[in-house]
């Protein structure tokens, strides 16, 4: 069971602000889902390596060769706010 405090902690980590109702609903739903996934722990996976990549690829590289940059107006083309050629954000603290 996930507590409201857990929900709040996770929401902060994920940068989501939840209303009181949302906290309740997500707490309940996450608990249900986690209850369902708990069955994974019944499996004995000792000695089983984790699969992070299904394909057996390794050492995929590019050469150290420069390519084209984006024109700066394209870089900032979707910016919600800008000042000159900088992205503009609210004060940090």
């Amino acid at each position: 069971m996930i507590s409201i405090k857990d929900v709040e902690h996770v929401a902060l980590l994920a940068r989501l602000s939840l209303t009181g109702d949302e906290k309740q609903v997500y707490g309940k739903q996450l608990s249900d889902i986690l209850e369902n996934v708990r069955k994974l722990q019944d499996l004995n996976t000792e000695g089983v390596p984790p699969t992070a990549h299904v394909l057996d690829l390794q050492n995929v590289f590019r050469e150290d060769r420069a390519g084209e940059h984006m024109p700066v107006d394209q870089v900032l083309g979707n910016a919600p706010d800008r000042q000159g050629n900088f992205f503009k954000v609210p004060k940090i603290i």
Binding site: V10, L43, T51
Partner: peptide
Amino acid sequence: YALSAGYYDAYYNQALKVRT
């Protein structure tokens, strides 16, 4: 939640093993 400290092995890494 699945990636956060203390749960990684029980959840995420276990899921990757089950994936195997």
